[in-house]
Design a protein around this nucleic acid. Structure first.
Lengths: 346, 346
DNA sequence: GCGGGCGTTTGAAATGTTTCAAGAGTCGTG
DNA sequence: CACGACTCTTGAAACATTTCAAACGCCCGC
């Protein structure tokens, strides 16, 4: 392929048609319905395209079609590998449907989220997947009202006005704490916050439920609140934990996500505590870095890629199936036991 | 804003014009040159837009303009937080220029890279930033030949045919190993591979250079090759390291990136080695998880966000400045000493 | 009362693609 | 030889926006 000298403008179908001595429509047919055009013509057109270095103009195509060939995912925190894995799941599904995926990152900031959404609506994307800063924000409502297929990822819809995909967080909290009780722990910390995050509330709720079911005293499940779900907050929780009087100090901690757990682990190791002997730790999400930690972390696994794939499936169904009905897909989390809760306590 | 019942089509400027009783051109003026239209008309048009829930159709806009209002970054490995940080830097610069950023991920697979690039060219993005699988791949050459602004990120251009942004990897290798020599280590492993990755070669080259300058015997800098720059490969390198006869066993390891270092750290801890006393570890990149490790990792810091910002600046210069000249921006890496190389050896 | 200038609005053209009804050409059959 | 059937190609319309020259209305000054 010898690219023509750029005389300023990219070659269009018109140029190709002229070069091949055929009409506009024929070039378009070569592009979209190669079967209907004769072999010789097709070949001639294809040669012309190669010589000119023709590339379809996607804007024009979209304009005509009325919609773009793309989905979008607005993730909550690009720094958390969890969301990257979800995005990867979405992308595989998008690829199967021959769509591109635009990945945006709100970084937990509502105004960025709004900005991204505005852009995506302007682009006329086929559907929007989002893990929102606030699941009840009014600008989310607008998306559905516009008729744009819309799925909430890793959050639940309060009102069923759209699809959502998430894991049963209450159950996740239960199995994490049940595992710790199994291992012989009788005083456990729940590390997580802020309360405004629904999942934190639900994981704690599950933890409390199972704790009560085992007949353990309420005050022995200690809530250490955090301001965010970050490594730094995990460290700070570790300090507070170490500051507790010995008889009140938990022998295990259940963290609302793996970043917190990694931070807590770091603090524990630095402080000379042995994990799991002095302090057992359970995380949530089972990101790759959990398994990769110096003391591999026990974690409540979310099917991250599958979450993404399902979300993409739902949004595509909404986009193409006229009698689509909204669906709240719930996945079952699973405990992955590793060294950080390794031994049964004496 | 009361959204009109969706009669199938999104409202266009034409609809707005009709609703406001003005012409097409006026609506466009309200959108693009609000100053030239009278206050009363503007208000009327704006009300109409709000009532109809009008949203600009970006495709049509792009078609007219001939180019999209977006940049793109094709990253090499979405699973490595390093690239996420670079992307964030790019995004801030893009935002300042009021452009969107499309983030794509080749996952180290050449065919995905090609696919992404094809799509981006079709979208007529203003410029492409890329950390390529292979910096010499012919499809990269085509991008520039098409006249699309193009910058290589974290890789160097061999021939100066385009801009690039990277860190001085040879220097990075030097300062890592100098640090270890300083700390009293006399037998050091270099963990990294495959050799096809230029940066691995250069980091090793720097390591060897400083090693020779200090007059250390060549055979005491031991190359432990890996198949990829991943945590798993780091672990496997750890096993091989442990398998060496005691007198040949290094007291420190310099890893070609932080993922390897984390894997190596994990293996060491599992094997009961004390870090840094039995084995000191230096990583490269200084991703957040390096600082968050149970034994915080010493690492060679790359200015990740700045790398991204600069790359975006360069691509924008190429896009807008008629007498742009290609530039190879080089950043100076810096050692961040942490606990994993903590003590001076007796 | 008329021309000039100013601020505002208009209408048409242009962007690149796809679609689709209609046309052209060819071949075989009655 | 005429007609229908079939294959292939054509040309025009449509998509939603922006731009820009031209028109419009109005006031001012002469």
């Amino acid at each position: 392929m010898t690219l023509q000298p750029r005389n300023g403008r990219a070659p269009s179908v018109k140029d190709v048609a002229a070069a091949a001595g055929v009409s506009l429509g024929t070039v378009s047919n070569v592009l979209n319905r190669p079967a209907v055009v004769s072999a010789t013509t097709r070949e001639r057109v294809e040669r012309a395209m190669a010589e000119l270095g023709f590339v379809r103009n996607e804007s024009a195509r979209q304009l005509r079609a009325g919609t773009s060939r793309a989905l979008a995912y607005v993730m909550l925190d690009g720094g958390n590998p969890f969301f990257h894995d979800v995005a990867e799941g979405i992308e595989t599904a998008a690829e199967d449907a021959d769509l591109s995926l635009f990945v945006c990152n709100s970084s937990g900031r509502s105004e960025r989220e709004v900005k991204h959404i505005d852009r995506l609506v302007q682009q006329r994307v086929q559907g929007i997947l989002i893990t929102p800063v606030d699941p009840d924000a009014p600008h989310l409502r607008d998306i559905s009202q516009r008729g744009i297929p819309f799925v909430m990822v890793d959050r639940f819809s309060r009102d069923g006005g759209h699809c959502s995909v998430a894991v049963d967080d209450v159950l996740g909290g239960r199995i994490a704490v049940e595992h710790l009780i199994d291992r012989g722990h009788r005083r456990v910390a729940f590390v997580g916050g802020p309360d405004s995050i629904g999942q934190v509330r639900e994981r704690l709720q599950g933890a409390r439920a199972i704790w009560a079911e085992f007949g353990m005293p309420e005050e022995d499940l200690i809530h250490l609140p955090t301001e965010a779900l970050t490594v730094a907050e995990g460290r700070s929780a570790g300090e507070r934990l170490a500051g507790l009087p010995t008889r009140r100090r938990p022998t295990a901690a259940f963290c609302a996500n793996d970043l917190l757990a990694l931070g807590l682990l770091q603090h524990a190791v630095t402080a000379g505590l042995r994990v799991p002997d002095d302090l057992a730790i359970v995380g949530f999400d089972d990101i790759d870095f959990a398994a990769a930690a110096a003391v591999p972390l026990t974690s409540v696994r979310q099917p991250r890629q599958e979450l993404g794939r399902t979300a993409a499936r739902l949004v595509l169904d909404e986009a193409t199936n006229p009698d689509h009905t909204h669906e709240q897909a719930t996945f079952v989390p699973a405990l992955v036991a590793r060294a950080s809760t390794g031994t049964v306590r004496r």
